[in-house]
Design a protein around this nucleic acid. Structure first.
Lengths: 255, 255
DNA sequence: ATTATAATGTGTAATTTGTACACAATTAGC
DNA sequence: GCTAATTGTGTACAAATTACACATTATAAT
């Protein structure tokens, strides 16, 4: 599920190929007049900063959605897998190629794109904002709070909502959250992350007890720096150990 | 999530339109030569019979996959939503239009279809085999055991695996399972269903206790018939009550 | 009618898991 | 050295899960 690929984006331009942004309208117009369904990928890129969940958005380039915010997406190249297309977009926009990325859902309602029939595959990506802070000097690319955000282009608000709910559920069952933090993190940071994403208040001692009992956090021996109080220990998540754990198929019926 | 729509399939034939089966190869050939990505929907239709999970398959009509089994699918019509396309296929093949249906995942690897580049959206459907037993006299349409099954066309084995795992997880968190049973069912039937799908053995008393404590099963006052032993009570699932329940966002971290 | 068979229906004790809660120890900043 | 702020830790209670056995009821065979 958790994909880590360095995508090769040297495919040729043909069909629904990746092309410079300014030609995309021409392609869509062509698709529409030919009665062809286009395929795109949209990336919901989450980051965590200032104890809040953020999403990376760009200003829409369609007149209809003037001044509205849009997810990062592009048409899928004829010679690349869907996952590769998502990686390509992510790399183009953030410069990162070693990130958590997972497909969430396809959105394909007839009227979702004003220019043509386009089915889009939504991907969810989690990145550490600190790591690429300098690279997003692009055109109108900005982080936005997930909770207070409206005026999105297309059906991107709906896509974002679905991905956010997906994340809330997923983070409790899989170790995704660490992708939003530095490699080394304090338990306080981890708890803040869970509290922000789930919008709940958790007991500090029980939270620690839970994570320690999983035995997947490694004490790095280092301490926080630059905090105006007693520094906490820094831990890192042990992915190898997690991978080796056998998955149980019985969780218990609960609905 | 749980969609129940009666699909309208009167759309015209244009572009990736729904067409008689024999023309599909022509369309694919055209797509390939034009460098266009096709979009299809594939339905993984599960049924439960003889205490085993079954899946509804058809013989592939491609030479390359001669004698291999294939999911039920079709190209997406230019004027229908993805969900509608899935419903259309389901209705065409089973005659049923009041069924559980949910999107699971898009599959779009470059080489997954031999004739052209085709991205497919996989849907999972759960139906009661008894209810439509007579309608599947179609060409080579048959139920297959999920566990002992190989030789599938395209990447359909992979799609089936993903959908089966999806089902195993989903059935523990959402009341899907009832769609595989008659409207009225005994607790034994329900437990058999869970045991078969999850491949686990469950304690009968604890299983009952769990379901009764949820207070979503209604005693119909009726009893099983045609069993060669003491008949069990028949229950039905109360969907209205379930819908009214508030969803909790905190389940507890566990991975 | 009697009996054998095969399942239903039920309760309790033991274990595990989750929750609520308070105080001493450590570091930075003044 | 004193204050402020946060870390680090344990225990008692509640809730949920698990393990487990026997009387009851209908059918089927005799």
């Amino acid at each position: 599920m958790n994909l880590k690929i360095t995508s090769d984006t040297t495919a040729k331009t043909s069909g629904n190929a990746a092309v410079p942004q300014k030609n995309i309208k021409t392609i869509l117009k062509q698709l529409e007049s030919d009665g062809i369904i286009g395929i795109s990928v949209d990336c919901v890129i989450f980051g965590f900063d200032d104890n809040e969940l953020k999403v990376l958005l760009i200003k829409s380039d369609l007149e209809k959605f003037d001044n509205k915010w849009s997810l990062l997406g592009d048409l899928v190249n004829n010679h690349e897998d869907l996952d590769q297309a998502a990686y390509r977009i992510l790399k183009e926009r953030t410069g990162l190629d070693d990130v958590y990325l997972e497909q969430v859902k396809a959105f394909g309602d007839v009227g979702r794109h004003p220019a043509a029939r386009v089915v889009t595959i939504a991907y969810c990506s989690l990145i550490n904002i600190e790591h690429h802070k300098l690279k997003i000097t692009d055109n109108e690319l900005h982080w936005h709070r997930v909770t207070t955000l409206s005026d999105m282009a297309f059906d991107h608000r709906q896509i974002l909502d679905v991905c956010y709910e997906w994340l809330q559920k997923r983070i409790q069952e899989h170790p995704l959250g660490f992708s939003l933090l530095p490699k080394q993190f304090s338990l306080r940071e981890l708890q803040n992350l869970y509290e922000a994403i789930l919008d709940v208040k958790l007991d500090r001692r029980n939270f620690r007890k839970k994570f320690f009992s999983m035995e997947l956090l490694e004490d790095t021996g280092e301490l926080e720096t630059d905090v105006p109080h007693r520094p906490g220990k820094l831990y890192k998540f042990n992915y190898e150990k997690y991978q080796k754990k056998e998955r149980k198929k019985w969780f218990g019926i609960d609905f």
